[in-house]
């Protein structure tokens, strides 16, 4: 079976399973998976920027902007959710453009540090601007609605999250498979070479960065109406690094890497809820993955298959290559 067709089959199977989940799993799993979907969007939203070779640790700031924009529009002006979500994402993108443009000339770690500084700056603004955001008192947020109907039940919110995630993933996948995606990859692999071939590096980087901000804003907006309580300290450095870690643990060589990373790490803590050792376990898994699976979890099946078929008898075996 050609790999694309096979991947498509599996994709359809997973989606079918996720659609069926509310009929099989309990209320809690619906809730849990909606949260996982948010993390998947966040992880995937960082990928274009990372592909271009930008070490971006700033996505919790753009999530924060999306979340507060959507929440405040809905709460104070009664703006319907579909509009407020779009506004939140757009504002995140506009701010991303404003910060991304002048940061283009920064290289490597300097770029990373500006994004870290930006995360802290946005978090502090959310906490200082009390008349608007209620600061560290936290902001309660109305439930999401769609076409005028309030999505009051967990099941309806779950499907909303699922649809949002699928839309975001399909868009990002199409982009990555387009000419644009190839240019991003070439910039990430050899910026100087790409430049000498006449690629407009600056604009392509900026586009990747801004697009990522937009989708982080989408995740933030849904998060706001799903958790229904916003608290500035939660949009700090820790969340930003988590989003980065999803990408690394999942694997950066494949589109599905961040998805796998986000799903795996989000569900990993579930069996340890009652234990104070949850974080210890979590970080050990993180460390081991980085050390022993440099390509991320996504390369694990390939490696296992490689182990099993180490004798050169099977003709179907292809050595794992970063796709």
């Amino acid at each position: 079976m050609p790999s694309n067709a096979r991947a498509a089959t599996v994709f359809v199977a997973v989606v079918a399973l996720l659609i069926a989940l509310p009929f099989v799993g309990g209320d809690y799993y619906i809730y849990l998976f909606a949260l996982v979907f948010i993390n998947v969007i966040l992880a995937a939203s960082l990928r274009p920027s990372l592909t271009c070779g930008q070490l971006n640790i700033g996505h919790s700031a753009f999530m924060c902007i999306g979340a507060y924009t959507s929440a405040l529009l809905a709460k104070n002006l009664g703006v319907p959710f579909e509009v407020s979500l779009l506004c939140g994402a757009l504002l995140a993108a506009v701010v991303g453009l404003a910060i991304g443009y002048p940061s283009l000339r920064l290289r490597g770690v300097y770029f990373a540090m500006v994004t870290v500084a930006f995360v802290e700056a946005i978090r502090l603004i959310a906490s200082i601007w009390v008349p608007l955001t209620r600061g560290n008192a936290g902001l309660s947020v109305p439930k999401p609605s769609l076409l005028g109907m309030s999505l009051a039940t967990r099941t309806s919110q779950y499907y909303l999250a699922l649809v949002l995630m699928l839309i975001v993933l399909v868009i990002l996948y199409k982009l990555e498979r387009s000419r644009l995606g190839l240019v991003w990859k070439s910039i990430g692999m050899a910026e100087n070479l790409a430049q000498s071939l006449g690629v407009d590096i600056a604009n392509h980087k900026l586009l990747a960065f801004t697009l990522g901000c937009f989708f982080a804003g989408v995740a933030g907006a849904f998060y706001a109406h799903f958790i229904r309580f916003l608290f500035p300290p939660e949009f700090g450095f820790l969340l930003a690094t988590n989003i980065l870690v999803y990408n690394f643990v999942g694997g950066r060589g494949h589109f599905a890497g961040p998805v796998v990373g986000a799903v795996f790490l989000s569900l990993l803590s579930e069996p340890f809820r009652g234990s104070p050792y949850e974080t210890i376990f979590f970080s050990i898994v993180m460390l081991l993955t980085i050390l022993f699976l440099p390509g991320g979890l996504i390369t694990l099946p390939g490696k296992l298959a490689g182990l099993r078929r180490w004798r050169p008898t099977s003709g179907t075996y292809a050595p794992p290559a970063s796709a």
């Binding site: 790999s3 991947a7 199977a13 997973v14 599905a256 996504i298 099946p301 390939g302």
Partner: peptide
């Protein structure tokens, strides 16, 4: 390897 990824998810 590419095709086995989604299986991990499943």
């Amino acid at each position: 390897m590419k095709q086995s990824t989604p299986f991990t998810l499943v």
